Simulated assay, not measured.
Amino acid sequence: MANVVLFHSAVGANEGFHKMADLFVDAGHTVHRPDYYDGHTFPNATEGTAYRDEVGFGNLAQHASDLIADLEGPLVFGGFSLGAAMAQSMGKRDPRASAALLFHAGGVAKPTSWQSHVPLQIHHSVDDPWIDEGNPDELVRSAARSGAQAAHYVYPGSGHVFGDPTGSDYNEELATLMWSRVFALIG
Rank of each mutant, 00 (worst) to 15 (best):
N3F: 10
N3P: 09
V4C: 01
V5K: 04
L6C: 02
H8R: 06
S9P: 02
A13Y: 07
G16N: 11
F17N: 09
F17H: 10
F17S: 11
H18M: 11
K19W: 07
M20Y: 09
A21H: 04
T30Q: 14
T30R: 11
H32Q: 11
H32C: 07
R33T: 14
D35R: 04
Y36F: 15
H40L: 09
F42V: 01
P43M: 05
A45S: 13
A45H: 12
T46V: 15
T46A: 15
E47G: 00
T49M: 15
G56Y: 09
G56K: 10
G58W: 12
G58V: 07
G58N: 14
A61I: 09
D66M: 06
D66K: 11
D70M: 09
L71T: 11
L71I: 13
L71G: 07
E72G: 12
P74D: 12
P74H: 12
G78L: 04
G79Q: 00
F80T: 01
S81C: 09
L82I: 01
G83N: 06
A84Q: 06
A84G: 09
A85Y: 11
A85C: 03
M86A: 08
M86T: 07
A87T: 08
Q88W: 06
Q88A: 08
M90C: 11
M90Q: 14
M90Y: 15
G91Q: 04
K92M: 15
R96S: 12
R96T: 12
A97N: 01
A97D: 09
A100Y: 01
L102K: 04
L102A: 03
G106Q: 01
Q115V: 02
Q115I: 04
Q115G: 01
P119I: 02
Q121D: 02
I122D: 04
S125V: 04
D127P: 06
E133L: 10
G134Q: 00
E138Q: 14
V140Q: 06
R141K: 14
R145S: 14
R145Y: 00
S146L: 07
A150N: 03
A150H: 02
A151F: 00
Y153P: 01
P156I: 06
P156W: 07
G159A: 05
G159F: 04
H160S: 03
V161F: 03
F162C: 03
D164R: 05
P165E: 09
Y170Q: 03
N171R: 14
N171A: 14
E173S: 12
E173M: 08
L174W: 12
M178F: 11
V182G: 03
F183V: 00
L185Y: 04
I186N: 08
I186Q: 10
